[in-house]
Design a protein around this nucleic acid. Structure first.
Lengths: 338, 338
DNA sequence: CGGATATATGCAAACGTTTGCATATATAGG
DNA sequence: CCTATATATGCAAACGTTTGCATATATCCG
């Protein structure tokens, strides 16, 4: 249905041939072209609204100008922020992003990867689905550039991997609660089966070695976390602080206290790993550990772009530093801040 | 760098020619092929892990198997839900989605559209950026199928458009507050300059004709809305209920009451247009008007697919019905529910 | 048995690009 | 004036597909 202008059309209008037009439009060197003809070609292209066909030029070995990105959940802002960052990097070079949601389903992931290969994308940014590492083998087999994000690629080694400092996030989160005098703590995490993500809990425990720590796990949803948190709080009324290991979980969890009539920052201290942009509350924001979502996306995209361009990539493993952001949701116990 | 298997490779291995392989792999009719040869071809393709190149086949007029989708904000779940729905529709037919964030910036939108045309996408789903309707003219000029979502395409007529029932959302939201006995109301909206979105306020006012209504507008962010809401509540302590016109805005706005120590559902009644999945709170969820985000995406994608396939599309304009979802954030005034 | 028809396969053009090679003129140096 | 060299342009092959056309054998019906 749609009809596009081709190089031939432009050439005809400019009174020359396709080859010359291609050289002009791509501003290639290695060929002399008179100012006069160049101007005529540019004018013709402009006038006819010529739009190059990437599909055709990629046949001749040019870049497809397409990047695939696999995430496990569109609606998780940690991942959308990574997408935003990647888009910024690549759009500036004229690349488009195909963002695909695997829904953490390996079957779906497999077919997505197959489709993306069919598109002959120039590279892939992948957060592997929960049990889907094997799905990426084909990517390596065809020699396509890939950067892994967030979770590791179980069963593989020697791949490019950018992630948060999961251990550090847990440590920083715990350390802060400890500093404020808390000694009886609840950690609500996600039982993902991904060892890297459990590092958050390990970091938390390491930071709070001399504390009483109660660990709970919930399915990955606000609702599940709400329920588990409710249980945790009822089972351990002696706890004075709670750390939520995952941003999305906290969206449910934090409401437990409000529903129980407990004032956050006074009756209970609350902190979380991730950035709670789902709840802007003036000067009373949540104390949280910022993971550097945007930077992770920026760095992953940067590495992928370097790989595509054939540039040198210094390190295969990048761990994004985390930052504590203090809000008003953590109060002092006993003598206050150490 | 990446090396892909071609039809020629498969043909060679199967001891036949590319033409035949193409027929077999696409399961085309109009040509006889012996069971024997067919089996050999399929085996060869399987063994070599042949993956078709969409770019090449689209040169011959086949579908590009690519759909572009433009939204103004990745991180707005209204739009990600539309993307999820569209992806489900198209993935089942083997199409990929290129999701692009215009950030509501017309310049950016223009270059995105240009890039997508370069990709020779088979169709476009577009939420026009704030002042960017003209950017889509080229789409119409080349005859590419397009479905508009959410906002209208100012200055055009005769296009396919799926949106929420903005007037209805406002009406239903207001009507519900009125039913619960509220007669002094605050509406916090977004001063977008898009008349269609102002329909929410009009619906609200129409439903509350006999009430005192205070309207406030804020920039489109939780923070801006927090501040405006704070001002509104202080200026009108007599108001007993608040309706937030936009989900994202409410993410900031609702915290005003908590920060002021007002109990939602008792000291103040709160409702919003959109689905507050950013705050799961057991049995105390927010009363809200569900816009049917997912359905909007589903329907838009369905129409686009029909257009691509050349199927009949009954109506150019689809308005998604809204639904009131009652939570616990609206209390009764006076005699209670009418 | 002869011609129509069904079965089975190969060949080559075309899609819209990119680029190496050939060609043609102008300019300069000896 | 003759040959290099710089300037300017055209031609055609190739990329990986799809598909119309040609070819060749087997089968069937009168």
């Amino acid at each position: 249905m749609a009809k596009f202008v081709t190089l031939r059309d432009v050439a005809e209008k400019a009174g020359t041939t396709v080859g010359t037009v291609s050289y002009v439009l791509n501003d290639r060197k290695g060929r002399y072209i008179s100012q006069e003809l160049r101007a005529k070609v540019l004018a013709a292209a402009e006038e006819l609204h010529y739009i190059k066909c990437n599909g055709a030029s990629s046949l001749k070995g040019m870049d497809r100008k397409l990047i695939g990105i696999l995430i496990p959940q569109y609606e998780n802002q940690f991942f959308t922020r990574i997408c935003v960052a990647a888009e910024e990097v690549f759009a500036s070079y004229g690349y488009d992003l195909i963002i695909c949601d695997t829904f953490d389903n390996p079957e779906r992931e497999k077919s997505i990867i197959h489709r993306l290969l069919s598109q002959r994308v120039d590279g892939l940014i992948v957060t592997p689905s929960l049990k889907g590492s094997e799905n990426t083998r084909i990517v390596r087999d065809v020699g396509l550039n890939m950067v892994v994000v967030d979770r590791p690629l179980e069963g593989f080694n020697d791949y490019y991997w950018v992630s948060a400092d999961n251990y550090g996030c847990g440590y920083v989160g715990g350390e802060n609660l400890r500093k404020h005098g808390h000694r009886s703590l609840i950690y609500v995490g996600w039982d993902s089966g991904i060892s890297e993500l459990s590092e958050r809990e390990r970091g938390f425990r390491d930071a709070c070695k001399d504390c009483e720590v109660f660990t709970y796990n919930a399915e990955f949803s606000p609702k599940a976390c709400y329920e588990v948190t409710m249980k945790a709080v009822k089972e351990h009324p002696e706890a004075t602080a709670v750390l939520f290991g995952f941003n999305v979980q906290a969206q449910g969890g934090v409401n437990v206290f409000r529903d129980l009539g407990m004032k956050i920052g006074e009756d209970i201290s609350v902190s979380l790993i991730g950035s709670p942009e789902w709840s802007y509350t003036g000067n009373n924001n949540f104390t949280h550990v910022h993971m550097g979502d945007y930077e992770i996306g920026k760095k992953a995209a940067g590495i992928l772009f370097d790989l595509i361009r054939g540039n040198d990539v210094p390190s295969k493993r990048v761990i994004q530093e985390c930052t504590l952001v203090e809000g008003a949701s953590v109060g002092n116990i006993g003598g206050g801040i150490e």
